[in-house]
C-alpha cells in the first residue's frame, strides 16, 4: 500500500547525496537499518563525508563511518534539536531522512518549521508500513496503525484508514466506517505491517 493513485500520497526515493548541497545532514531511524546496510549507506555518502553529519536515532544505532555521528534516543529529540538549533542551517544545506513514515514526517515537519524547503529534504521510507492516523471526528492522532480499520485512540470510533495524506499532520485520514449503518464494520485486514 505504499503506492496509491491518490495524489496526496507521498512517494519516496533511495537516498543519495545531492552534490550541489553545501552541508549534509543524514538522520536515520536506527530500527530501520538492516544489518550491514549502514556500511552501504556510508559508501553512498562517502563523496560528501567531509560535510556530513549523521544523527542515529533509537536503540540499535550501530555502525560507524558516516561523517560526524550523533546519537539521539528518539524522534522527539530530533524535533527538539531542530527547534533549539543554535547553529543556523544554510540555504544550500541538504537533509536526508530514512525511517518509517511517521518518523520521516516528524523530522520533515520540524525541519520545515525552521525553514527547510521540500527540495532540500530527501526522504527514504524503510521499515514498517505502520501509519499515523488522524481522526476526522475528534482530531486525535492514533499511532502505529497496521490495519485497514483502526479504533481511534480518542473517540474509539472504528476508522477506515484512507490513503489521503497530510504532510502538515504527517498522518493519514481516518473516517468512521460505520456511520451510515452503525455496527456494520467490514472485516479488518492487516494492511500496513
Amino acid at each position: 500500500m505504499l503506492h496509491s493513485d491518490i495524489k496526496s500520497r507521498p512517494t519516496y526515493t533511495q537516498l543519495e547525496p545531492d552534490l550541489s548541497g553545501s552541508q549534509h545532514l543524514l538522520i536515520v531511524e536506527g530500527d530501520t537499518v538492516l544489518p550491514g546496510r549502514l556500511d552501504s549507506l556510508a559508501g553512498t555518502f562517502a563523496p560528501v563525508e567531509e560535510n556530513l553529519h549523521t544523527w542515529l536515532v533509537g536503540t540499535q544505532a550501530g555502525g560507524l563511518g558516516l561523517g560526524k555521528v550523533w546519537r539521539l534516543p528518539e524522534v522527539a529529540d530530533v524535533v527538539d534539536a531542530f527547534a533549539c538549533a543554535t547553529r543556523g542551517y544554510g540555504i544550500g544545506d541538504r537533509l536526508y531522512v530514512q525511517g518509517t513514515e511517521p518518523f520521516l514526517w516528524s523530522v520533515a515537519k520540524a525541519a520545515a518549521i525552521i525553514g527547510f524547503s521540500a527540495e532540500q529534504i530527501h526522504l527514504h521510507h524503510a521499515g514498517s508500513l505502520r501509519r499515523r492516523v488522524w481522526c476526522t471526528h475528534c482530531h486525535t492522532v492514533t499511532e502505529n496503525v497496521t490495519t485497514s480499520i483502526a479504533s481511534c485512540a480518542g473517540c474509539h470510533r472504528h476508522l477506515l484508514v484512507r490513503d489521503h495524506f497530510s504532510r502538515r499532520l504527517g498522518a493519514f485520514m481516518g473516517v468512521m466506517v460505520d456511520a451510515e449503518a452503525p455496527g456494520e464494520v467490514p472485516a479488518v485486514e492487516e494492511s500496513f505491517a
Partner: peptide
C-alpha cells in the same frame, strides 16, 4: 552573499 544566507531565504 549567497553562501551566507540562512535556510528559508
Amino acid at each position: 552573499l549567497l553562501a551566507a544566507q540562512p535556510v528559508g531565504t
